[in-house]
Design a protein around this nucleic acid. Structure first.
Length: 916
RNA sequence: GGGCCUAUAGCUCAGUCGGUUAGAGCGCACGCCUGAUAAGCGUGAGGCCGGUGGUUCAAGUCCACCUAGGCCCA
């Protein structure tokens, strides 16, 4: 008789080196090292050579700062796309890019080393800065397990890329879509430079606060009673110096206005604001006429001190918080004023120079700064009797971040791409309809933007970027806009980079013999402005043509939903204008990363989580799993609670793989695989479920629906495998003779599911699938990395429809049995379910099914005995007859009858005899 | 202020054309097992479907408004 220790040695218990504890933060770097050493990305590409291409074109992140969760979400999603299409059999390259030029880097560099007059030196510092962060971010992306051409990314500051930008600009010029016009920008009169929004600080500032009268012309058109009366539109302003540039007065179309009599004079202002002015004047008005703002549109008023008219216009931004509801409008001195000016076709007047001094356009102020001009303007107003009230106000006012002085809004010449001159807008709107937008509402969102956007201002008064390739006549100032000159510029940039613009004289770029078309001079100066960085990144589609193994257009662009206004937008306009069609076929967007309460992460809220922390504490795989479980088309949440759930989910999947591997320890696929017709019913059942799942998963990958894959697989691992199949086949796996058919049958099923689930999950659980793959039994054609595999082909169902229905019945009785067993357990009647015998009552048809499968009830219900009776469906629990077999723990009447093995059941006696 | 989007259990997600008592997994509680063991199995309790109105015989689902949140503009 064998003692329990010896008996245990006759069992086939699972064994594997695949550890239960993942230790992801330590293990992942080792896996990354393996991938690097085996040159995995290159090998995948070589293996797919000649296959149809699938191109995901990377939107370049900005080369500034460490990556945040938004970057991680984006890059991991892209990795899912690329890896899954690669495993579908496509040649799917991933060429990462970086956006390197632009203001944020200029600002950082300026903060570090101060402002350099020497542009070349300054640009070199910017370049160094960008290079540093490209490297940093690259390493962080690699750490996430993202595969790609990391040694050879595209950078918007590469000479070749810069040349391509020039060629694209040339295209716009050639088609006559570019024009030059004035637009107001923030301007620092002290630093004599344009400022971007990001370079503005707001401080308290004391300004004049004045009410000014504009005599209304033809007031009788508003109301006959006003004929020959002195009617004035009253405006309020804190910048009297902009009054010389006044060209309009804006009213809100829907607000209630009134004509108020004050002695001999009549004032037009918003009714709600009249009391404020009455108080200011210490007067009491009489309301003589009521009207809505829109009624005054098109009226004209006399300028208070210049020989000019001012047009009454309508604008939605007019508020009733302050002033009179009649807004002084100077299109050359304010953003909103400018927009209104464009709408009404007004001149963009800005009679102020670089230093903030008035030009000769306003004689009495010529040479005065705008600050000196304020009192002078008030004086003139007073003289002309147009100053209604005057005071002072302290308010928040924009200041220069460098010199801390107050800034002004000043119109300067800029370059624009016209949306309509060559039909760019209409073409774009047509192309939008041909693209597949995921989610579908993206189409409407970008459509509305393109439909309503103004012309594109592509010039910037900065240093760190690509110059606009035009020159100006030294003699008469006429711009020199010539394709052949731009071609030369592109050639030079291709060789020397855009620094060359600042190194060489104009002659270096201008072919001999070119003269100013206006005055014939051959002396030129270079343009100082650079191109908007959105134009640069919008040019990125060009790399698809230049890189040998890519293709134009791209199949997929995939970015955060802020990029409808950003990269999708600029790429469409730039790509379409130059190539005639959209550079992408499918556009996928993901949402924003929020904290666990659904609020945006921000430093000030203190709720920011860094990807680095998660990698350090949990591992990149958990981050990948997070991305996989989310419906990324909406905003996504992350916090400690969610990470905890994910970690548990990860452990469950890892353990399921571990258990499968443990039971395959002696399985040699090419020798032991059992033919499908010899599999047991439960094997055929689980394989059919798995194969159906595999088919759905492949379809879901094709449609980028990763969270459905994650849920399906997770449910399959927990419900179908862990708590059902893998639980019920333990008896077969452990207790049968190692080479017994029923044991090899279970191993056959487990092997297929382990192997193919690793393949199918490799794009998501890239690290763990790889690790598990290493522990999977060798088989002919097994790749050294799971990422070199392809998704499994579709395998057939192993159940007839009839059998599917029978399984529904079996599962129903399994539920009933579990409830009955639980009840018995609670009553202390049994502990382990093998102590039980089940008594099934079933209607005739179901009784037939139960009887058919009853040879397998030991495994299906994990009980030692059973009886089946006809009756109303229910399950009762009895004590199993016989004694417990010490080897398999099953109760059997024969236990004790064999004198040689009194502690074993007949099955185990047979196995033990075979083994000894 | 405008464009687009979101809201179902503690978490992640289902919920068809409007149609019985709104589902799953996890987590949680309780129990079992000790041959997947820092594991495994079973049972159970959790929901004003963001709110208010409306359409309808019938609303998580359709409509309007509101609240909270997100992205992009102004």
């Amino acid at each position: 008789m064998l003692d329990p220790k010896e008996l245990k040695r006759t069992l086939n218990l699972p064994r594997t080196d695949f550890p239960m504890k993942a230790s992801l933060p330590q293990r992942e770097p080792q896996i990354l090292k393996k991938w690097k050493e085996m040159n995995l990305y290159k090998r995948i590409r070589e293996q797919r050579k000649g296959r149809p291409r699938f191109i995901l074109h990377d939107g370049p992140p900005y080369a500034n700062g460490r990556i945040h969760l938004g970057h991680a979400l984006n890059k991991i999603l892209k990795d899912f796309v690329v890896k899954s299409y690669s495993m579908m059999g496509y040649d799917a390259p991933y060429l990462p890019g970086w956006d390197c030029h632009g203001l944020p880097i200029e600002i950082k560099v300026e903060n570090q080393i101060g402002r350099l007059e020497d542009k070349i030196k300054f640009r070199r510092e910017c370049k160094k800065y960008a290079e540093r962060f490209v490297k940093l971010q690259r390493d962080e992306f690699i750490r996430l397990g993202v595969f790609g051409e990391w040694e050879n990314p595209y950078l918007t500051m590469d000479p070749g890329y810069e040349a391509e930008i020039i060629r694209h600009i040339k295209g716009f010029f050639q088609r006559g879509e570019v024009y030059r016009a004035k637009k107001p920008v923030y301007w620092c009169p002290h630093c004599k430079t344009a400022l971007a929004e990001a370079e503005i600080e707001y401080h308290e500032h004391k300004s004049p606060s004045v009410y000014v009268k504009f005599p209304l012309l033809e007031p009788e058109k508003l109301s006959p009673s006003l004929r020959d009366k002195k009617v004035f539109v009253v405006i309020w302003t804190t910048t009297p110096w902009t009054l010389p540039a006044n060209l309009a007065i804006a009213l809100h179309p829907d607000y209630d206005y009134g004509v108020f009599r004050n002695g001999e004079e009549y004032y037009i202002l918003a009714r709600l604001l009249a009391p404020m002015l009455e108080e200011e004047l210490g007067a009491s008005f009489e309301l003589v006429h009521k009207f809505e703002g829109r009624e005054l549109e098109g009226f004209k008023a006399k300028h208070p001190f210049l020989n000019r008219e001012s047009l009454v216009v309508l604008a939605d931004y007019v508020t009733l918080e302050q002033g009179t509801g009649c807004v002084h409008t100077a299109p050359g001195h304010g953003e909103e004023d400018y927009q209104t000016g464009l709408k009404y076709g007004l001149e963009i007047l800005s009679p102020v120079d670089d230093e903030g001094r008035f030009t000769g356009e306003v004689e009495f102020l010529q040479g005065k700064t705008v600050w000196e001009a304020n009192p002078l303007v008030l004086e003139v107003l007073r003289e002309k009797g147009m100053l209604l009230a005057q005071g002072e106000i302290t308010h928040s006012y924009p200041h220069c971040w460098r010199c801390k002085g107050p800034v002004i809004f000043r119109a300067t010449p800029q370059w624009f791409i016209s949306m309509d001159k060559a039909g760019l807008r209409d073409k774009a709107l047509r192309e939008i309809k041909k693209v597949r937008w995921i989610p579908s509402w993206g189409e409407e969102r970008i459509y509305n933007m393109i439909e309503n956007r103004p012309d594109w201002c592509i010039s910037r008064q900065r240093s760190w970027g690509v110059p606009i390739p035009v020159f100006y006549c030294k003699n008469c100032g006429e711009p020199l806009v010539k394709p052949e000159v731009m071609d030369r510029v592109a050639e030079v940039f291709e060789r020397e980079g855009s620094d060359s613009w600042f190194l060489h004289p104009p002659e270096y770029f201008i072919p001999e013999g070119i003269k100013c078309e206006k005055c014939g001079s051959s002396q030129f100066v270079k343009e100082n402005d650079i191109v908007d960085v959105w134009f640069e990144s919008g040019t990125s589609h060009a790399v698809l043509k230049h890189r040998e193994d890519h293709r134009w257009p791209a199949d997929v662009y995939l970015e955060g939903n802020d990029q409808y206004r950003g990269w999708f937008h600029s790429s469409l306009l730039v790509g379409l204008a130059n190539e005639g069609e959209s550079p992408y076929r499918v556009v996928i967007t993901h949402g924003w990363v929020l904290d666990e309460q659904g609020r945006a992460m921000s430093k000030s809220m203190g709720n920011v989580i860094e990807p680095g922390e998660i990698i350090k504490d949990y591992g990149a795989e958990i981050l990948r799993l997070w991305v996989a479980f989310l419906d990324y088309t909406e905003d996504v949440k992350l916090g400690q609670n969610i990470l905890q759930r994910l970690t548990e989910a990860y452990r469950k999947m890892r353990n399921t793989w571990r258990f499968m591997l443990g039971n395959l320890r002696d399985f040699i696929p090419q020798e032991h695989t059992v033919k499908e017709e010899e599999l047991l019913p439960s094997d055929r059942f689980i394989l059919t479920r798995f194969r159906t799942l595999a088919g759905r998963v492949k379809e879901l990958y094709r449609n980028y629906q990763y969270y459905k894959i994650a849920h399906l697989f997770y449910d399959f691992f927990t419900v179908d495998l862990s708590s059902f199949y893998l639980d019920i086949v333990k008896d077969r796996l452990y207790c049968s003779a190692p080479g017994a058919l029923e044991r090899r049958a279970a191993q056959t099923a487990i092997f297929e599911m382990a192997r193919d689930s690793m393949r199918l999950l490799a794009p998501i659980l890239s690290f763990t699938a790889e690790e598990a793959w290493e522990h999977l039994p060798e088989f002919p054609g097994k790749s050294p990395s799971v990422h070199l595999e392809v998704f499994p082909p579709q395998l057939p169902s192993l159940l007839t429809e009839e059998e599917e229905k029978e399984w529904d019945v079996l599962m129903k009785y399994r539920d009933l049995a579990n409830k009955a067993l639980d009840q018995a357990r609670k009553e202390g009647f049994i502990g382990n379910s093998l102590e039980a015998s089940l008594l099934f009552y079933a209607p005739a048809e179901e009784k037939r099914v139960l009887e058919k499968y009853s040879p397998y009830f030991l495994e299906l219900f994990i009980v030692s005995a059973w009886r089946i009776e006809e009756g109303e469906e229910r399950v009762e629990v009895e004590r199993a007859p016989g004694k417990k077999c010490e080897r398999c723990w099953v109760y059997h009447p024969e236990v004790g009858k064999d004198p040689q093995h009194p502690n074993l059941c007949p099955r185990c006696i047979a196995v033990v005899k075979e083994l000894i």
